[in-house]
Design a protein around this nucleic acid. Structure first.
Lengths: 228, 228
DNA sequence: CGGCTGCTTGACACATATGTGACACATACT
DNA sequence: AGTATGTGTCACATATGTGTCAAGCAGCCG
């Protein structure tokens, strides 16, 4: 699953530059031109990283950052703050805003990309690493294999992506809509019920060699991978 | 200790391609985007090989090469010169300067890697891995032979390179695009399905004297050599 | 205990990906 | 030129995976 980056930036040219470079490096992106929009998009789908402009219309960047930190599901969400050089002086350097890193405009895109990778690796190594284990389940993206209790399990492409999606945030509950966006892609249209079917198939595969059901159904909310 | 390669190349895309392929074959690398930087890095740590772009900002490649030769501690350092085809007339001068080999851009990465091995083998034989065995399959690059279970197997050039590519990272899944880039060369255009045909031919050859299929098909992802 | 709602699951028609023989063309060697 | 070998592409056969539905099941609440 590609890392998903929210770009909260009102200058269209800057936002598009960021989007271009991020997608070039294999990230999925979305753009929020103001603070309100950023909060809305954060509710819709929690990204893996936020690039946050300091001067953002409606709700300033620092306030967005504060709100991100105050919500449990985004408390650890990596945030990189973008600031103009003139704003450099104050509290920004202290990072007491809760941002994980900051970059001053104008910036070199390669440097920014390096910071993005660095922050992602530090805070969410699962995205950068190619082997993730939760409980007795292991997903290896390099070899495209899944094993439980060291025994290989065959999954179809969609089931593989689904498990890969779940395992990045063990315990977290995903709605059918979130799963459709994240696993199928936000552009395709399929019935929400289809998710149920694939979760069922994933369960069947994961339990084919014994063991408990590793997926939890949360009635009228969605599904989650049982944490370790 | 892994061989250490200095990549002196200003085009980021080319430099990263080289880095990717060299690290893939087990080398440590560093990149210098201009002649000055190259000289600085040469002082910091003497590499085992230098890939040197002919047209390098600040200090041109040929001059860097001359300086390398003039310093006692790097006088015998292997250098491979990278030149654009239009600069081809200069290659004699390049070899005069003391480069050990030259390659014209655009180049096939496998060919370049072969040259890298060849130069290193000539000058630092101990550093080069010429024979790789995974399971019952052995690839010998010096004799260009492949054997399974100690019985020789004849492969065409493309099948040989394909197996050679696979065997560097047993188990790892390569997409058709990766294989096209790595085995055919990033510049040529051939249909992605052609990979399927060659994988089929490779399978047939490897199984011609019995034994299981050593190649795994990963639906909608690519192929991999089954690990040992 | 109904009755409601949401979840599970087998069946199935359809879509998509892969395997492979044939073939025309390219290239190297004699 | 003549032969042998290898290459890329196509068409068709096969294998595998996908989305939808509907019947049945399970939790929840009065």
């Amino acid at each position: 699953m590609k890392p998903f980056v929210l770009i909260a930036e009102d200058e269209k040219a800057v936002a598009e530059l960021l989007r271009y470079n991020l997608e070039r490096e294999g990230y999925d992106t979305t753009i929020a031109p103001d603070g309100d929009e950023a909060m809305i998009q954060l509710d819709e789908r929690v990204p893996d990283l936020v690039l946050l402009d300091w001067m953002l219309p409606k709700v300033p960047g620092i306030e967005v950052c504060r709100r991100i930190r105050s919500k449990p599901e985004t408390a650890n969400l990596p945030v990189i703050m973008l600031t103009a050089r003139s704003e450099e002086g104050d509290r920004i350097r202290g990072l007491d805003t809760g941002a994980d890193d900051y970059v001053t405009k104008p910036f070199s895109t390669t440097e920014l990309m390096a910071r993005v990778r660095a922050v992602l690796r530090r805070i969410r190594p699962a995205l950068v690493e190619d082997k993730i284990t939760v409980g007795d389940i292991t997903v290896d993206r390099t070899t495209h294999t899944v094993s439980r209790d060291n025994r290989d399990i065959h999954l179809g492409p969609t089931e593989f992506r689904l498990l890969d999606y779940f395992i990045q945030h063990p315990g977290r509950v995903f709605s059918r809509e979130q799963l459709l966006d994240g696993v199928w892609g936000s552009d395709v249209y399929v019935e929400a019920r289809t998710v149920d079917v694939h979760v069922g198939r994933l369960r069947k595969a994961l339990m084919s060699q014994g063991g408990d059901d590793p997926i939890r159904t949360v009635r009228s909310a969605g599904y989650s991978l049982k944490g370790s």
